[in-house]
Design a binder for these strands. Structure first.
Length: 424
RNA sequence: GGAGACGUGGCAGAGUGGUCGAUUGCGGCGGUCUUGAAAACCGUUGAGGUUAGUAGCCUCCGGGGGUUCGAAUCCCUCCGUCUCCGCCA
């Protein structure tokens, strides 16, 4: 959520930067400013009315205290009109405020000035990549779904039986590898100073609004209507909202937390595209890292978080590249995002295993999260998060890239967690 | 699920219709004293809106609504917490 004050002062810049994101409904900004102006006008009229009414009430109180009943009664008769006026104004104020708030929720975050223009994938910029791997001469590489079957690691059909497509069942070393990921990624995060947190997997509506999934991505989350709760699409939602409605003091900053959770996504509208095997699922596991920092540090932190994610794929010995997302691909709530992709040799595809974003004050505003600056003044901190990492695509790439004739090599860093060097 | 109690400022805890945004204690911050610290003493210390404003005005005692000239205080409703019973990993 942007701040109205900023919109008022920088309307033109705002309109231009929204265009970078492909957001053309600039009229929303104008409507918002109009609603805001109305609101402020009503507010001051109401304040004045209440002030008069309050003064009269005090007078009555005094007169009653002195036992001057008749005089009190006389003053009472003056209050009726003010009362009606105040009620009308209050209603108007509520309407204007609600309208302003609703418009505010529909306007996406502004992209950082360094975010490249572009509509989709083709506009993203590769900013870093591992040295290109030598082309394998052996072209008989199996895609991970075949390997999963060959070594009995994942059963997709069983998942269909009990739930539906996109809910795989991990078996044997497949299940064990999932567990290895949980431990490995959380151990790594802890070494980086992240506090380990295990959050709820269902969140309320308010949390959904706080991080920006609602109302924008309503249809992408599983909604438990009976209790009006949502299954989390990412740990970002419960983790970041942990700090909602707070004023963090200097000692609590920066906040660095990490959590492992399953994630649930309806993926409505994405059927048929890259959905084979583990590439796109309705339920998957992920370790998420979140930071809440002072505004001046957030872009430095975004780089640091990205480097950390890169260090993970390097430790897993996976070929990777880092993309700076263009405006069109940057999400509703984000100001800047890096994607980290790994290369899956058999599919010959880049798979996104992490997305690291700086939301600046967008989420903080929505969540009413604040901190203090050096002078003790209340300011809005910046929030950031990133996957570190999403399991299924890491597993897909590991299986495909590390396959041998009759086994799959476990990367060195995972051997202690897997308890073996090869999957056979 | 049934019955009851309760929800006040960072925390604890007063306040049951009138000048209460709220007594007090702890904590925090500033100061006096001290070589330094502690103790003691003095002062200060919630949030939001409007505004050029640390001026004024308005709002906020779990959320929402109502009664009243006036509500933290009364009524309704929702949410949450606690206790007892039932059920249960």
């Amino acid at each position: 959520m942007l701040q109205t004050d900023y919109l008022r002062k920088h309307r033109e810049t705002v309109a231009q930067r929204l265009l970078v994101k492909g957001f053309h409904r600039v009229e929303l900004v104008d409507q918002l400013l109009e609603a805001d102006q109305q609101r402020r006008h009503i507010q001051s009229t109401l304040d004045e009315t209440l002030s008069q009414s309050k003064a009269l009430a005090k007078t009555i109180g005094k007169l009653m205290g002195q036992g001057k009943q008749e005089e009190a009664q006389a003053v009472k008769s003056q209050t009726a009109q003010l009362k009606i006026k105040a009620k009308t104004l209050q209603e108007q104020l509520n309407n204007a405020t609600a309208k302003q708030h609703q418009l505010l929720l529909e306007i996406p975050n502004l992209p950082h000035p360094d975010v490249p223009k572009g509509k989709g994938e083709e506009g993203n910029v590769v900013v870093k990549a591992s040295p290109p791997a030598l082309e394998e001469k052996d072209q008989r590489l199996l895609p991970h779904w075949d390997l999963a079957k060959k070594y009995n690691l994942i059963d997709f059909d069983l998942g269909v039986k009990v739930t539906g497509a996109g809910f795989p069942v991990y078996l044997n070393d497949g299940a064990r590898m999932q567990r290895a990921f949980v431990s490995f990624f959380l151990d790594q995060a802890r070494k980086q100073g992240y506090q380990e947190v295990q959050p709820p997997l269902l969140v309320n509506e308010n949390a959904g609004f706080g991080t920006g999934q609602l109302p924008d991505k309503d249809g992408q989350m599983y909604h438990v209507t009976q209790d009006n709760l949502y299954l989390i699409p990412t740990a970002e939602v419960p983790l970041t909202n942990l700090y909602g409605n707070r004023i963090l003091n200097t000692r609590e900053m920066p906040v660095k937390i990490a959590g492992y959770t399953p994630c649930f996504r309806r993926e409505a509208g994405s059927y048929g595209k890259d959905v084979r095997g583990l590439n796109r699922l309705h339920q998957f596991d992920k370790v998420e890292i979140v930071q809440i920092v002072h505004p001046g540090e957030s872009y430095k932190v975004l780089e640091a978080m990205t480097s950390y994610v890169v260090s993970l794929v390097e430790k897993l010995e996976l070929p990777y590249r880092v993309l700076k997302l263009c405006g069109g691909d940057t999400s509703f709530a984000a100001a800047m995002t890096y994607d980290v992709e790994v290369y899956a040799k058999a599919q010959k595809k880049w798979l996104e295993v992490s997305s690291i974003s700086n939301f600046e004050t967008f989420q903080a505003t929505r969540m009413k999260l604040r901190c203090k600056d050096n002078h003790g003044k209340k300011i809005l901190p910046h929030t950031l998060n990133g996957s570190a990492l999403a399991f299924p695509r890491v597993m897909a790439a590991l299986l495909e890239n590390n396959q041998r004739e009759d086994k799959i090599k476990v990367p060195r860093v995972l051997v202690e967690y897997m308890g073996k060097e090869f999957i056979q």
